[in-house]
Design a protein around this nucleic acid. Structure first.
Lengths: 242, 242
DNA sequence: GAGTGGTCTAGACCACGCT
DNA sequence: GCGTGGTCTAGACCACTCA
């Protein structure tokens, strides 16, 4: 039986406040109503409002000043990634001001190399679901992303995986796994063999993101190896310091 | 438990729990005592314990499982940066397993260029405090960092600024400013003129971090332009997804 | 069923910024 | 002095995991 879990009060308030910030009901620089006003408006306790505002503050969406008030961060539109939450390459392209489209390249099964097996905590040679895709920004190739997922995690071995979905959706739908945290290694690299697909010169340099996605049980779910053409889009991230 | 009067209860508990994780009293993978046990141990309410645990969870230090328990993330030692908190290059080098030393290169006053003035929200030509420094990892140059701070923010125009301090300390001591959030732009770049100082070839590629530090009032405090030799140390960051 | 974390309430008092 | 956010309490009940 499929149970549709109704969302918690704080989650609903969270969604509403985000929406108000997004549609500029609360514009950048705007001072939000006080905690007690909000708790009255939504008919919830102040503690509930505070847990919601705390989440928004961690992401840097709002700035809280004791003795003064809560303000919408004026610079949230200048960034394309935020920490303290989930993001993926489709978001990244969109929030950089482009139209995004995902172009699946190769989707197949491969055998795990020694390195891949080590990071995924499996044995060398074990079957992996492999997917490479291109993220286009206004139809221009911007990100080349490769993902590897242990085939043993597949819930339905015959499922046809849709290469247009975001990685967390794929993991959810076809592997029934939730991502709890991600470790990302960021470095600078030569374009080399990836130059062709990204439509740049072989001796250009790219931003390389090596990501490992883990479940709450510390199990590695997916290995990601991605190349960003940072002439087209740069990682611009906002980080709240407290 | 030694009580430090100036700090709040939750901050003290926060420090103690961090310490226990750091010194492996709570080792990676360890299941922490339940919230009610901790609230008994410290003589505080469960709500207080929860605010502390929430902060640790945002940083990915701990993983919380409803119906089960709270576990120390087994992979916190694999990363050198964490989001949801403050970090600087000295931390980054240390957490990468190196001995860190800071070598100030040039500390002087300069006039703001057009670009610099725009980002710092001041007028072109206004005086800036300029500082470039090398962060050494085991005495090997790893990061070249340049910082620009509007001289008008200086509280004491005659102060001798210590180039060995971390940037947030400098801003605190000499400018009496607190950093509320940071916007970082990450890209890949050619070493070029920075090759010499970092002791690498001119045609090598580097990781470039352009950081802008802001106060709670959305005022730009500092401009940072840094080059990381990612042969020596890579950005490895942990990001909790909820 | 017992124990865990997740949500939520209705208070109280404190620290801080303004005017 | 007043209103703001910051801290903290002592409850209650729910959702979930595991034996």
């Amino acid at each position: 039986m499929r149970v549709i879990r109704s969302k918690s009060i704080s989650e609903q308030v969270n969604i509403i406040l985000r929406e108000r910030i997004r549609d500029a009901t609360y514009a950048p620089g705007y001072r939000l109503p006080s905690e007690s006003s909000l708790s009255e408006e939504f008919g919830v306790s102040r503690a509930t409002i505070r847990t919601v505002l705390a989440k928004l503050a961690v992401e840097g969406m709002i700035l809280r000043k004791q003795g003064d008030g809560t303000y919408v961060n004026e610079r949230i539109r200048e960034v394309n990634t935020h920490f303290g939450g989930q993001w993926d390459f489709a978001d990244l392209v969109e929030r950089s001001g482009y139209e995004v489209s995902i172009q699946p390249l190769k989707i197949k099964m491969v055998a795990a190399s020694e390195d891949e097996a080590r990071v995924l905590a499996i044995d060398t040679g074990v079957e992996l679901f492999s997917m490479s895709r291109l993220f286009l920004a206004n139809n221009q190739p911007a990100i080349l992303a490769k993902n590897l997922i242990p085939a043993s995690l597949l819930t339905d071995q015959n499922a046809e995986i849709d290469g247009h979905l975001r990685i967390r959706e794929i993991l959810k739908q076809f592997f029934r796994q939730d991502i709890a945290f991600v470790i990302t290694e960021i470095s600078s690299t030569l374009a080399g063999e990836n130059a062709n697909l990204l439509n740049i010169k072989t001796d250009s340099h790219l931003l390389n993101l090596k990501m490992t996605f883990y479940s709450k049980d510390n199990q590695p779910l997916t290995l990601g190896n991605s190349y960003l053409n940072d002439d087209i889009l740069k990682l611009r991230l906002l980080q709240a310091w407290n």
